[in-house]
């Protein structure tokens, strides 16, 4: 079982690598094949990845997110799934090329960590574990994709403003499409993240006796939440869009990454069981 699990993860990783390579091929030698090949590779990678994840859930008897290895792997899986959702709704060349490197980093990182099944800390034995983690991770996955759209937007905007209109400019999508995609990811990701935080707070009141403990993870997710709340508000009421929205999304991305990983690696707190 252990071997199959590892092999499935390695298979998923290889497909993510193929997707990234295809993305670069598309940048320099564009063609329909390279364009679709990249997202197909992520799709197949996600299938293998999901199989691995299900095996692990079956083995541990719960949502397999109780150590850093499992969390990284699960986040990568959700990111791949979110990509498939977004790509279906709003297919945009190059988004895969942005997503694939992240998938590779997370999956590879998960693979090099010890991935033996660890005993589940008693505090995590709860109905709220899958609810809280699934909602927060899914919300973050969409917001990360929104950041991908933002990065591509900034590149394309720069090229248009500076009138560098050959090569990669031709391959990148229209600004408006990128901005719409960024907004779409925000509208999906933000409510999920909100629900994730609320469910965490409900769980905390059972587990730790208080809704909010100013644990670093909580503080940082509040910061992240406030950033995206401001962006959503700005978009809805003040006509924030384009460059400003893209920059804020990228700052939000940094906050997500720090909340997810930085807090566990550099700060200690109640969420510190991941180590």
């Amino acid at each position: 079982m252990e071997l199959i699990y590892s092999l499935l993860l390695v298979g998923a990783l290889l497909l993510y690598v193929i997707s990234m390579i295809t993305g670069f091929v598309y940048l320099f030698r564009p063609g329909q094949k390279a364009l679709h090949g990249g997202s197909d590779a992520i799709r197949f990678g996600a299938v293998l990845h999901a199989a691995a994840f299900l095996i692990r859930c079956f083995e541990t008897g719960t949502l397999a997110v109780t150590n850093l290895h499992e969390s990284l792997s699960f986040f990568a899986l959700l990111l791949a799934l979110a990509f498939i959702v977004v790509n279906r709704k709003n297919s945009i060349a190059m988004l895969g090329a942005f997503t694939a490197p992240l998938l590779i980093i997370f999956t590879l990182w998960a693979l090099v960590l010890n991935h033996a099944v660890t005993p589940q800390p008693p505090i995590l034995k709860s109905f709220w574990l899958p609810v809280h983690v699934l909602l927060s991770f899914a919300g973050n996955a969409f917001l990360v994709l929104g950041c991908g759209a933002a990065v591509i937007y900034l590149i394309q905007e720069h090229l248009i403003k500076k009138k560098r209109l050959k090569g990669i400019f031709r391959r990148l999508p229209a600004l408006q499409k990128l901005d719409e995609l960024n907004y779409f990811c925000l509208r999906l990701g933000f409510p999920l993240l909100t629900l994730g935080i609320i469910s965490g707070s409900v769980w905390a009141s059972y587990a730790w006796g208080s809704h909010w403990n100013w644990d670093p993870k909580e503080t940082w997710s509040l910061i992240t939440w406030l950033l995206f709340a401001a962006l959503l508000h700005g978009r809805m009421n003040s006509g924030w869009r384009g460059r400003r929205a893209a920059l804020l999304t990228i700052i939000g991305f940094a906050a997500i990454m720090f909340t997810f990983l930085g807090v566990n690696l550099f700060l200690s707190g109640l969420h510190g069981y991941l180590h």
Partner: peptide, 9 residues
């Protein structure tokens, strides 16, 4: 062509 790169459609 440029307009399409800005607005898409």
């Amino acid at each position: 062509e440029l307009a399409k790169k800005i607005f898409g459609d």
